[in-house]
Write a protein that binds this DNA or RNA. Structure first.
Lengths: 211, 211
DNA sequence: TTTGATTGATTGATCGTTCAATTAAAAATA
DNA sequence: TATTTTTAATTGAACGATCAATCAATCAAA
Protein backbone atom coordinates (compact mmCIF):
# COMPACT_ATOMS: atom_id res chain seq x y z
CA UNK A 1 0.00 0.00 0.00
CA UNK A 2 2.25 2.76 -1.21
CA UNK A 3 2.00 5.94 0.79
CA UNK A 4 4.20 8.83 -0.25
CA UNK A 5 7.25 10.01 1.66
CA UNK A 6 8.33 6.48 2.45
CA UNK A 7 11.93 6.99 1.39
CA UNK A 8 13.35 8.25 4.69
CA UNK A 9 11.67 5.52 6.70
CA UNK A 10 12.70 2.78 4.29
CA UNK A 11 16.31 3.94 4.25
CA UNK A 12 16.35 3.94 8.02
CA UNK A 13 14.87 0.49 8.43
CA UNK A 14 17.05 -0.98 5.68
CA UNK A 15 20.17 0.35 7.39
CA UNK A 16 19.03 -1.01 10.76
CA UNK A 17 18.28 -4.34 9.11
CA UNK A 18 21.75 -4.36 7.57
CA UNK A 19 23.37 -4.04 11.00
CA UNK A 20 21.26 -6.88 12.36
CA UNK A 21 21.86 -9.05 9.33
CA UNK A 22 25.62 -8.61 9.60
CA UNK A 23 25.32 -9.60 13.24
CA UNK A 24 23.39 -12.75 12.45
CA UNK A 25 24.81 -13.91 9.12
CA UNK A 26 28.24 -12.36 9.06
CA UNK A 27 29.34 -9.69 6.62
CA UNK A 28 30.35 -12.05 3.83
CA UNK A 29 27.22 -14.15 3.80
CA UNK A 30 24.72 -11.36 4.11
CA UNK A 31 22.38 -11.03 1.12
CA UNK A 32 20.16 -8.24 -0.09
CA UNK A 33 17.20 -10.59 0.14
CA UNK A 34 17.82 -11.26 3.83
CA UNK A 35 18.27 -7.61 4.66
CA UNK A 36 15.13 -6.67 2.74
CA UNK A 37 13.06 -9.38 4.39
CA UNK A 38 14.28 -8.24 7.80
CA UNK A 39 13.22 -4.68 6.90
CA UNK A 40 9.85 -5.97 5.68
CA UNK A 41 10.30 -5.03 2.03
CA UNK A 42 11.24 -6.75 -1.22
CA UNK A 43 14.75 -7.09 -2.51
CA UNK A 44 13.97 -4.82 -5.41
CA UNK A 45 13.21 -1.92 -3.09
CA UNK A 46 16.63 -2.03 -1.53
CA UNK A 47 18.14 -1.55 -4.97
CA UNK A 48 15.60 1.17 -5.73
CA UNK A 49 16.73 3.27 -2.76
CA UNK A 50 20.40 2.37 -2.48
CA UNK A 51 21.35 1.42 -6.01
CA UNK A 52 23.49 -1.55 -5.05
CA UNK A 53 24.50 -3.80 -2.20
CA UNK A 54 27.81 -2.00 -1.86
CA UNK A 55 26.11 1.34 -1.50
CA UNK A 56 23.74 0.01 1.14
CA UNK A 57 26.69 -1.31 3.11
CA UNK A 58 28.55 1.97 2.69
CA UNK A 59 25.52 3.92 3.87
CA UNK A 60 25.31 1.67 6.92
CA UNK A 61 28.91 2.36 7.80
CA UNK A 62 28.44 6.11 7.38
CA UNK A 63 25.41 5.87 9.63
CA UNK A 64 27.37 4.16 12.40
CA UNK A 65 30.20 6.67 12.11
CA UNK A 66 27.72 9.53 12.25
CA UNK A 67 25.91 8.19 15.31
CA UNK A 68 29.13 7.64 17.19
CA UNK A 69 30.41 11.07 16.26
CA UNK A 70 27.17 12.75 17.32
CA UNK A 71 27.21 11.06 20.71
CA UNK A 72 30.75 12.19 21.39
CA UNK A 73 30.06 15.71 20.16
CA UNK A 74 27.09 15.98 22.51
CA UNK A 75 29.20 14.92 25.47
CA UNK A 76 32.02 17.27 24.51
CA UNK A 77 29.60 20.19 24.47
CA UNK A 78 28.96 19.61 28.18
CA UNK A 79 32.60 19.16 29.15
CA UNK A 80 34.40 22.30 30.23
CA UNK A 81 37.79 21.15 31.46
CA UNK A 82 40.46 19.23 29.55
CA UNK A 83 40.07 16.33 31.95
CA UNK A 84 36.32 16.30 31.47
CA UNK A 85 36.81 16.38 27.69
CA UNK A 86 39.00 13.32 27.89
CA UNK A 87 36.33 11.51 29.83
CA UNK A 88 33.66 12.69 27.42
CA UNK A 89 35.53 11.19 24.47
CA UNK A 90 36.12 7.93 26.29
CA UNK A 91 32.57 7.55 27.57
CA UNK A 92 31.20 8.58 24.17
CA UNK A 93 32.95 5.63 22.59
CA UNK A 94 31.12 3.21 24.87
CA UNK A 95 27.71 4.81 24.84
CA UNK A 96 24.87 2.33 25.15
CA UNK A 97 23.24 2.03 21.77
CA UNK A 98 26.66 2.04 20.13
CA UNK A 99 28.33 -0.51 22.36
CA UNK A 100 25.90 -3.30 21.48
CA UNK A 101 26.58 -6.72 20.05
CA UNK A 102 25.09 -6.08 16.62
CA UNK A 103 26.82 -2.72 16.26
CA UNK A 104 30.12 -4.18 17.40
CA UNK A 105 29.80 -6.94 14.83
CA UNK A 106 29.15 -4.39 12.10
CA UNK A 107 32.09 -2.20 13.12
CA UNK A 108 34.42 -5.13 13.11
CA UNK A 109 33.24 -6.16 9.66
CA UNK A 110 33.66 -2.65 8.30
CA UNK A 111 37.15 -2.38 9.71
CA UNK A 112 38.09 -5.59 7.99
CA UNK A 113 36.39 -4.71 4.76
CA UNK A 114 37.78 -1.17 4.64
CA UNK A 115 41.25 -2.51 4.02
CA UNK A 116 40.35 -3.26 0.41
CA UNK A 117 37.81 -0.48 -0.11
CA UNK A 118 39.42 2.95 -0.55
CA UNK A 119 36.24 4.90 0.19
CA UNK A 120 35.59 3.07 3.46
CA UNK A 121 39.22 3.28 4.37
CA UNK A 122 39.18 7.02 3.90
CA UNK A 123 36.17 7.43 6.18
CA UNK A 124 37.65 5.33 8.96
CA UNK A 125 40.97 7.14 8.71
CA UNK A 126 39.31 10.52 8.99
CA UNK A 127 37.34 9.41 12.02
CA UNK A 128 40.39 7.90 13.62
CA UNK A 129 42.52 10.98 12.97
CA UNK A 130 39.89 13.23 14.52
CA UNK A 131 39.68 11.02 17.59
CA UNK A 132 43.43 11.08 18.11
CA UNK A 133 43.52 14.82 17.43
CA UNK A 134 40.84 15.51 20.04
CA UNK A 135 42.59 13.33 22.57
CA UNK A 136 45.96 14.93 21.90
CA UNK A 137 44.54 18.40 22.29
CA UNK A 138 43.01 17.66 25.68
CA UNK A 139 46.09 15.80 26.84
CA UNK A 140 48.25 18.83 26.05
CA UNK A 141 46.96 20.36 29.29
CA UNK A 142 48.77 17.66 31.21
CA UNK A 143 51.66 16.55 29.04
CA UNK A 144 54.22 17.90 26.59
CA UNK A 145 53.30 17.32 22.95
CA UNK A 146 55.32 14.17 22.26
CA UNK A 147 53.93 12.48 25.35
CA UNK A 148 50.42 13.71 24.61
CA UNK A 149 50.62 12.21 21.13
CA UNK A 150 51.84 8.91 22.48
CA UNK A 151 49.11 8.69 25.11
CA UNK A 152 46.48 9.73 22.57
CA UNK A 153 47.54 6.90 20.29
CA UNK A 154 47.53 4.54 23.25
CA UNK A 155 44.06 5.64 24.28
CA UNK A 156 42.70 5.16 20.79
CA UNK A 157 44.33 1.74 20.65
CA UNK A 158 42.81 0.69 23.92
CA UNK A 159 39.36 1.87 22.88
CA UNK A 160 39.58 -0.13 19.66
CA UNK A 161 41.01 -3.08 21.55
CA UNK A 162 38.17 -3.14 24.03
CA UNK A 163 35.75 -3.05 21.10
CA UNK A 164 37.38 -5.90 19.21
CA UNK A 165 37.66 -8.06 22.30
CA UNK A 166 34.00 -7.43 23.00
CA UNK A 167 33.22 -9.15 19.74
CA UNK A 168 34.55 -12.44 21.07
CA UNK A 169 33.01 -12.37 24.54
CA UNK A 170 29.70 -14.05 25.30
CA UNK A 171 28.67 -11.94 28.27
CA UNK A 172 26.70 -8.80 27.40
CA UNK A 173 28.77 -5.64 26.85
CA UNK A 174 29.67 -3.75 30.04
CA UNK A 175 30.23 -0.08 29.15
CA UNK A 176 31.26 0.84 32.69
CA UNK A 177 34.02 -1.74 32.87
CA UNK A 178 35.23 -0.63 29.44
CA UNK A 179 35.31 3.01 30.50
CA UNK A 180 37.14 2.17 33.71
CA UNK A 181 39.86 0.32 31.79
CA UNK A 182 40.55 3.22 29.45
CA UNK A 183 40.29 5.84 32.17
CA UNK A 184 42.82 3.90 34.24
CA UNK A 185 45.22 4.01 31.33
CA UNK A 186 44.88 7.74 30.79
CA UNK A 187 45.09 8.56 34.48
CA UNK A 188 48.16 6.43 35.05
CA UNK A 189 49.93 7.83 32.00
CA UNK A 190 49.29 11.41 33.06
CA UNK A 191 50.58 10.75 36.54
CA UNK A 192 53.59 8.78 35.39
CA UNK A 193 54.72 11.18 32.71
CA UNK A 194 54.31 14.00 35.19
CA UNK A 195 56.42 12.23 37.78
CA UNK A 196 59.11 11.72 35.17
CA UNK A 197 58.97 15.35 34.13
CA UNK A 198 59.29 16.54 37.73
CA UNK A 199 62.86 15.34 37.73
CA UNK A 200 62.55 12.08 39.62
CA UNK A 201 64.61 9.26 38.20
CA UNK A 202 62.32 7.04 36.17
CA UNK A 203 60.93 4.43 38.54
CA UNK A 204 61.30 0.83 37.42
CA UNK A 205 59.14 -2.09 38.39
CA UNK A 206 62.08 -4.38 37.64
CA UNK A 207 62.98 -4.27 41.27
CA UNK A 208 59.85 -6.20 42.08
CA UNK A 209 60.26 -9.41 43.98
CA UNK A 210 61.57 -11.98 41.51
CA UNK A 211 59.86 -15.23 40.65
CA UNK B 1 55.13 -33.41 -13.30
CA UNK B 2 53.95 -35.16 -10.19
CA UNK B 3 56.66 -35.94 -7.67
CA UNK B 4 55.61 -37.74 -4.54
CA UNK B 5 55.49 -36.19 -1.09
CA UNK B 6 54.06 -32.94 -2.40
CA UNK B 7 51.27 -32.72 0.14
CA UNK B 8 53.16 -30.89 2.90
CA UNK B 9 54.63 -28.37 0.49
CA UNK B 10 51.31 -27.76 -1.26
CA UNK B 11 49.48 -27.28 2.02
CA UNK B 12 52.09 -24.78 3.12
CA UNK B 13 52.03 -22.75 -0.07
CA UNK B 14 48.24 -22.79 -0.27
CA UNK B 15 47.99 -21.44 3.28
CA UNK B 16 50.57 -18.77 2.53
CA UNK B 17 48.67 -17.87 -0.63
CA UNK B 18 45.46 -17.63 1.36
CA UNK B 19 46.97 -15.03 3.67
CA UNK B 20 48.21 -13.01 0.71
CA UNK B 21 44.92 -13.32 -1.14
CA UNK B 22 42.96 -12.09 1.89
CA UNK B 23 45.36 -9.18 2.05
CA UNK B 24 44.87 -8.28 -1.59
CA UNK B 25 41.24 -9.16 -2.28
CA UNK B 26 39.63 -9.01 1.13
CA UNK B 27 38.21 -12.00 2.95
CA UNK B 28 34.77 -11.87 1.33
CA UNK B 29 35.94 -11.60 -2.25
CA UNK B 30 38.68 -14.16 -2.09
CA UNK B 31 38.14 -17.16 -4.38
CA UNK B 32 39.65 -20.61 -4.45
CA UNK B 33 40.79 -19.96 -8.00
CA UNK B 34 42.75 -16.87 -6.96
CA UNK B 35 44.38 -18.60 -4.03
CA UNK B 36 45.31 -21.59 -6.17
CA UNK B 37 46.77 -19.45 -8.93
CA UNK B 38 48.84 -17.55 -6.37
CA UNK B 39 50.12 -20.89 -5.06
CA UNK B 40 50.87 -22.00 -8.60
CA UNK B 41 48.39 -24.87 -8.72
CA UNK B 42 44.92 -25.53 -10.09
CA UNK B 43 41.72 -24.91 -8.19
CA UNK B 44 41.00 -28.60 -8.08
CA UNK B 45 44.13 -29.27 -6.07
CA UNK B 46 43.08 -26.96 -3.28
CA UNK B 47 39.95 -29.03 -2.88
CA UNK B 48 41.93 -32.23 -3.10
CA UNK B 49 44.08 -31.29 -0.11
CA UNK B 50 41.69 -29.22 1.96
CA UNK B 51 38.26 -30.54 1.03
CA UNK B 52 36.56 -27.16 0.84
CA UNK B 53 37.13 -23.44 0.90
CA UNK B 54 35.96 -23.24 4.51
CA UNK B 55 38.46 -25.84 5.58
CA UNK B 56 41.30 -24.06 3.80
CA UNK B 57 40.38 -20.83 5.57
CA UNK B 58 40.12 -22.62 8.90
CA UNK B 59 43.52 -24.23 8.38
CA UNK B 60 44.98 -20.82 7.62
CA UNK B 61 43.63 -19.41 10.86
CA UNK B 62 44.97 -22.34 12.84
CA UNK B 63 48.33 -21.80 11.20
CA UNK B 64 48.46 -18.14 12.25
CA UNK B 65 47.42 -19.00 15.80
CA UNK B 66 50.07 -21.68 15.96
CA UNK B 67 52.85 -19.43 14.67
CA UNK B 68 52.00 -16.66 17.10
CA UNK B 69 51.81 -19.10 19.99
CA UNK B 70 55.13 -20.68 19.12
CA UNK B 71 56.87 -17.31 18.99
CA UNK B 72 55.59 -16.35 22.40
CA UNK B 73 56.41 -19.74 23.87
CA UNK B 74 59.99 -19.46 22.63
CA UNK B 75 60.38 -16.04 24.24
CA UNK B 76 58.83 -17.21 27.49
CA UNK B 77 61.33 -20.04 27.70
CA UNK B 78 64.13 -17.47 27.89
CA UNK B 79 62.43 -15.20 30.41
CA UNK B 80 63.22 -15.91 34.03
CA UNK B 81 61.58 -13.14 36.01
CA UNK B 82 57.90 -12.15 36.09
CA UNK B 83 58.78 -8.80 34.57
CA UNK B 84 60.72 -10.46 31.79
CA UNK B 85 57.81 -12.80 31.16
CA UNK B 86 55.48 -9.84 30.73
CA UNK B 87 57.85 -8.33 28.21
CA UNK B 88 58.20 -11.67 26.44
CA UNK B 89 54.46 -11.93 25.96
CA UNK B 90 54.20 -8.37 24.73
CA UNK B 91 57.14 -8.57 22.35
CA UNK B 92 55.96 -11.96 21.12
CA UNK B 93 52.72 -10.41 19.97
CA UNK B 94 54.58 -7.99 17.72
CA UNK B 95 57.23 -10.29 16.38
CA UNK B 96 58.32 -9.48 12.84
CA UNK B 97 56.81 -12.09 10.57
CA UNK B 98 53.56 -11.92 12.51
CA UNK B 99 53.18 -8.17 12.65
CA UNK B 100 53.07 -7.78 8.87
CA UNK B 101 50.41 -6.19 6.70
CA UNK B 102 49.14 -9.38 5.12
CA UNK B 103 49.03 -11.23 8.43
CA UNK B 104 47.28 -8.34 10.12
CA UNK B 105 44.67 -8.30 7.38
CA UNK B 106 44.07 -12.01 7.81
CA UNK B 107 43.78 -11.76 11.59
CA UNK B 108 41.26 -8.98 11.32
CA UNK B 109 39.20 -10.97 8.85
CA UNK B 110 39.26 -14.04 11.06
CA UNK B 111 38.20 -12.04 14.08
CA UNK B 112 35.25 -10.70 12.16
CA UNK B 113 34.35 -14.01 10.63
CA UNK B 114 34.68 -15.96 13.88
CA UNK B 115 31.63 -14.22 15.27
CA UNK B 116 29.38 -16.41 13.12
CA UNK B 117 31.57 -19.51 13.03
CA UNK B 118 31.51 -21.50 16.28
CA UNK B 119 34.69 -23.45 15.53
CA UNK B 120 36.72 -20.33 14.80
CA UNK B 121 35.21 -18.56 17.75
CA UNK B 122 36.25 -21.36 20.03
CA UNK B 123 39.86 -21.22 18.83
CA UNK B 124 40.13 -17.47 19.27
CA UNK B 125 38.60 -17.64 22.72
CA UNK B 126 41.01 -20.31 23.86
CA UNK B 127 43.95 -18.30 22.59
CA UNK B 128 42.66 -15.13 24.20
CA UNK B 129 42.01 -16.84 27.53
CA UNK B 130 45.53 -18.26 27.58
CA UNK B 131 47.01 -14.86 26.83
CA UNK B 132 45.10 -13.21 29.67
CA UNK B 133 45.91 -16.08 32.00
CA UNK B 134 49.63 -15.78 31.29
CA UNK B 135 49.55 -12.05 31.79
CA UNK B 136 47.60 -12.34 35.02
CA UNK B 137 50.00 -14.90 36.41
CA UNK B 138 53.04 -12.74 35.79
CA UNK B 139 51.30 -9.61 37.06
CA UNK B 140 50.51 -11.35 40.34
CA UNK B 141 54.13 -10.71 41.33
CA UNK B 142 53.39 -7.01 41.36
CA UNK B 143 49.70 -6.65 42.06
CA UNK B 144 46.89 -8.24 44.08
CA UNK B 145 44.70 -10.57 42.03
CA UNK B 146 41.82 -8.21 41.19
CA UNK B 147 44.24 -5.56 39.97
CA UNK B 148 46.31 -8.13 38.10
CA UNK B 149 43.21 -9.36 36.29
CA UNK B 150 42.22 -5.85 35.36
CA UNK B 151 45.64 -4.95 34.02
CA UNK B 152 45.86 -8.26 32.16
CA UNK B 153 42.59 -7.51 30.40
CA UNK B 154 43.83 -3.99 29.67
CA UNK B 155 47.08 -5.29 28.24
CA UNK B 156 45.28 -7.77 26.01
CA UNK B 157 42.95 -5.00 24.86
CA UNK B 158 45.81 -2.70 24.00
CA UNK B 159 47.62 -5.42 22.09
CA UNK B 160 44.51 -6.13 20.02
CA UNK B 161 43.88 -2.41 19.62
CA UNK B 162 47.35 -1.77 18.27
CA UNK B 163 46.82 -4.62 15.82
CA UNK B 164 43.48 -3.40 14.57
CA UNK B 165 44.71 0.18 14.20
CA UNK B 166 47.67 -1.11 12.25
CA UNK B 167 45.22 -2.40 9.67
CA UNK B 168 44.19 1.15 8.82
CA UNK B 169 47.61 2.79 8.75
CA UNK B 170 49.57 3.20 5.53
CA UNK B 171 53.04 3.40 7.02
CA UNK B 172 54.77 0.02 7.46
CA UNK B 173 54.25 -1.69 10.83
CA UNK B 174 56.60 -0.50 13.59
CA UNK B 175 56.96 -3.30 16.15
CA UNK B 176 59.13 -1.22 18.46
CA UNK B 177 56.63 1.60 18.75
CA UNK B 178 53.88 -0.94 19.37
CA UNK B 179 55.86 -2.63 22.11
CA UNK B 180 56.70 0.70 23.73
CA UNK B 181 53.01 1.64 23.88
CA UNK B 182 51.99 -1.57 25.62
CA UNK B 183 55.02 -1.61 27.93
CA UNK B 184 54.20 1.94 28.98
CA UNK B 185 50.73 0.83 29.95
CA UNK B 186 51.90 -2.12 32.01
CA UNK B 187 54.67 -0.17 33.69
CA UNK B 188 52.40 2.73 34.63
CA UNK B 189 49.70 0.44 35.95
CA UNK B 190 52.12 -1.46 38.13
CA UNK B 191 53.55 1.73 39.56
CA UNK B 192 50.19 3.36 40.09
CA UNK B 193 48.50 0.41 41.73
CA UNK B 194 51.51 0.03 43.95
CA UNK B 195 51.40 3.66 45.00
CA UNK B 196 47.75 3.29 45.86
CA UNK B 197 48.40 0.16 47.86
CA UNK B 198 51.18 1.84 49.84
CA UNK B 199 48.60 4.02 51.54
CA UNK B 200 48.98 7.28 49.64
CA UNK B 201 45.70 9.00 48.82
CA UNK B 202 44.86 8.29 45.23
CA UNK B 203 46.44 11.06 43.16
CA UNK B 204 44.12 12.85 40.77
CA UNK B 205 45.08 14.55 37.57
CA UNK B 206 41.99 16.72 37.87
CA UNK B 207 44.10 19.38 39.52
CA UNK B 208 45.83 20.00 36.21
CA UNK B 209 45.76 23.49 34.86
CA UNK B 210 42.28 24.01 33.42
CA UNK B 211 41.58 24.96 29.84
C1' DT C 1 -4.29 11.11 -14.67
C1' DT C 2 -0.01 11.37 -12.84
C1' DT C 3 3.45 9.86 -9.85
C1' DG C 4 6.05 7.49 -6.40
C1' DA C 5 6.12 3.01 -4.02
C1' DT C 6 6.54 -1.72 -4.45
C1' DT C 7 6.81 -6.27 -6.05
C1' DG C 8 8.47 -10.66 -7.97
C1' DA C 9 10.01 -13.04 -11.75
C1' DT C 10 14.01 -13.14 -14.73
C1' DT C 11 18.69 -12.79 -16.20
C1' DG C 12 23.51 -13.18 -16.20
C1' DA C 13 27.58 -13.88 -13.94
C1' DT C 14 30.30 -15.88 -10.44
C1' DC C 15 32.10 -19.49 -7.90
C1' DG C 16 32.47 -23.76 -5.06
C1' DT C 17 32.64 -28.35 -6.02
C1' DT C 18 33.02 -32.66 -8.62
C1' DC C 19 35.14 -35.84 -11.62
C1' DA C 20 37.05 -38.25 -15.39
C1' DA C 21 41.32 -38.10 -17.65
C1' DT C 22 46.45 -37.43 -17.71
C1' DT C 23 51.04 -37.47 -16.08
C1' DA C 24 55.11 -39.32 -14.22
C1' DA C 25 57.35 -41.21 -10.38
C1' DA C 26 57.90 -45.50 -7.76
C1' DA C 27 57.32 -50.41 -7.13
C1' DA C 28 56.88 -54.81 -8.89
C1' DT C 29 57.74 -58.09 -12.22
C1' DA C 30 60.00 -60.44 -15.86
C1' DT D 1 68.06 -54.08 -17.01
C1' DA D 2 63.82 -53.63 -19.28
C1' DT D 3 58.92 -53.74 -18.87
C1' DT D 4 54.73 -53.55 -16.65
C1' DT D 5 51.82 -52.10 -12.90
C1' DT D 6 50.52 -49.24 -9.40
C1' DT D 7 49.82 -45.04 -7.25
C1' DA D 8 49.92 -40.15 -6.05
C1' DA D 9 49.70 -35.63 -8.18
C1' DT D 10 47.41 -32.63 -11.02
C1' DT D 11 44.51 -30.56 -14.27
C1' DG D 12 40.57 -28.37 -16.51
C1' DA D 13 36.12 -28.79 -18.11
C1' DA D 14 31.41 -29.20 -16.59
C1' DC D 15 27.65 -28.77 -13.15
C1' DG D 16 24.66 -26.58 -10.07
C1' DA D 17 23.59 -23.25 -6.82
C1' DT D 18 23.52 -18.69 -5.31
C1' DC D 19 22.86 -13.92 -5.80
C1' DA D 20 23.08 -9.06 -7.33
C1' DA D 21 20.87 -6.43 -10.45
C1' DT D 22 17.13 -5.39 -13.80
C1' DC D 23 12.61 -4.40 -15.26
C1' DA D 24 7.99 -4.60 -16.60
C1' DA D 25 3.79 -4.59 -14.15
C1' DT D 26 0.81 -3.28 -10.18
C1' DC D 27 -0.99 -0.41 -6.70
C1' DA D 28 -2.79 3.52 -4.40
C1' DA D 29 -2.34 8.12 -2.99
C1' DA D 30 -2.39 12.91 -4.81
Amino acid sequence: MPRIGMEAERRRSLIAATVDAIHEQGYCDVTIAQIARKAGVSGGLAHHYFGSKDQLLAATMRHLLHELGEGIRARLAEAHTPRARLSAIIAGNFETGQFREAVIAAWLAFYSQARTNPASQRLLRIYSARLVSNLTHSLRSFLPLPDAQLVAEGTASMIDGVWIRRALKEAPPDPEAAIRLVEDYVEAQILLHRARASGATTPQSDGGRPE
